[in-house]
Design a protein around this nucleic acid. Sequence first.
DNA 1: AGTGTTTAAGTCATCTAATCACTTCAGTGG
DNA 2: CCACTGAAGTGATTAGATGACTTAAACACT
Lengths: 231, 231
Amino acid sequence: MPASIGLVERLTREIVETIRTENLQPGQSLPSAKVLASRFEVTVPTVREALRRLEATGSVELKHGSGTYVREAINRRILDNPHYVPVDLAAAIELLDARIAIEPGIAELAANVQDADAVNSMESALDNALQVKTAVPAGHFHVELARASGNRALHEMLVSLLAIHSRTQQAARTSYDRLRDHDEHADILDAIRRGDGFEASHRTRKHLEAIKTAVLADWADDTDPTEGSRR
Amino acid sequence: MPASIGLVERLTREIVETIRTENLQPGQSLPSAKVLASRFEVTVPTVREALRRLEATGSVELKHGSGTYVREAINRRILDNPHYVPVDLAAAIELLDARIAIEPGIAELAANVQDADAVNSMESALDNALQVKTAVPAGHFHVELARASGNRALHEMLVSLLAIHSRTQQAARTSYDRLRDHDEHADILDAIRRGDGFEASHRTRKHLEAIKTAVLADWADDTDPTEGSRR
DNA sequence: AGTGTTTAAGTCATCTAATCACTTCAGTGG
DNA sequence: CCACTGAAGTGATTAGATGACTTAAACACT
């Protein structure tokens, strides 16, 4: 019987186990590939293959000439596919539909939990949104909203969704009105602060549906009226 | 300026691009590592590191002595972290909370869309659920429900959630009553068939909340009444 | 002809060894 | 004090070789 899974597979798990048992936090460095090789009694190329696997899921980062470092994603359950290549604009709409389906429920939960740190972060995201030099990344408000729910799985889910969204929306330039975006965010935050789950859910849904409408309108504008497809 | 990203990083993208342009479908084999190496003018170990990255995200599979094959996940946006190690039982509850937050919305969407193939698949999942030799994997009904929504992102999300769930619930043995599970699924499917989004959403939420209650009850049973914590 | 075994080619798996490139930091000299 | 330099450590990539596994064709036996 093939009870023997690949050596790299096993080695990968052992490295993760090492990170766990030695309580290495994101930012800290792993032993060098050479050290890991001797410790697990394999050769350097094998170690590198295992590290490449962990790199693909964002669990570690290989810095040339410096070392190998633990990254945040090692604690994440839900990830976005780093090798996914965005295809058409319809995929962007599909992502928005997905958000419309799940974010209202997240907003409701956030209203009931109200993780203090995350709620404050939503507030600051709100403030910075109107600044010209917006250091806050797009969608940050929504990510923090998910974090306010206190559920890490939901948080990771929205992080993943927006990561894909940002890669996809190269095509779909969302020209959603900045001021309107801010106001609607403020309304949502208000409902969450009051602990009104129903309103938070409802306003979040309306907000996202409005964005979808705007994106669709942009699409219609971009498309040549005399022609159905582009390229 | 670091205009130079790693060679492996670039190579990985080129391989994905090759799969795309040559329209290789899941199950089909990639050229051998040696061929890829000469085609992209790198050496075999470098190719292998790139393939390991793709392997980690389930985009390809390396079969010893056979070849490298494309896998389904190459078309997925949302993934579960293959290196995630389940920790405590509280994480299982957190996953259930996440499902309670998002699945009602998915059920509502499913009621409005009703992807024919997926709805039929839900039906068959329902039928097989009561068989002793249950070939249908756990949670299959819920995955198909998400597929019935017609939104691939949502479908992938639930696949990921349940993949993690199955790895976590080694600890949390859900002893949810099989018959009750079946009946509640039937009720949900009924609402979806009727196109009643509100009912589908409501019944899905109640169903998941009932499961959560059952899991918590199991937990209480397992825990020694005289002691608050274990380990 | 049909069946089972053997053989050979192709492929991934792993190792050994070496060179190159990048980062860091301590030490040097200004 | 500061800028420069150089050495050490580390990852990046290459090269070649050996082993193990899979597959299927060639073969021998029935």
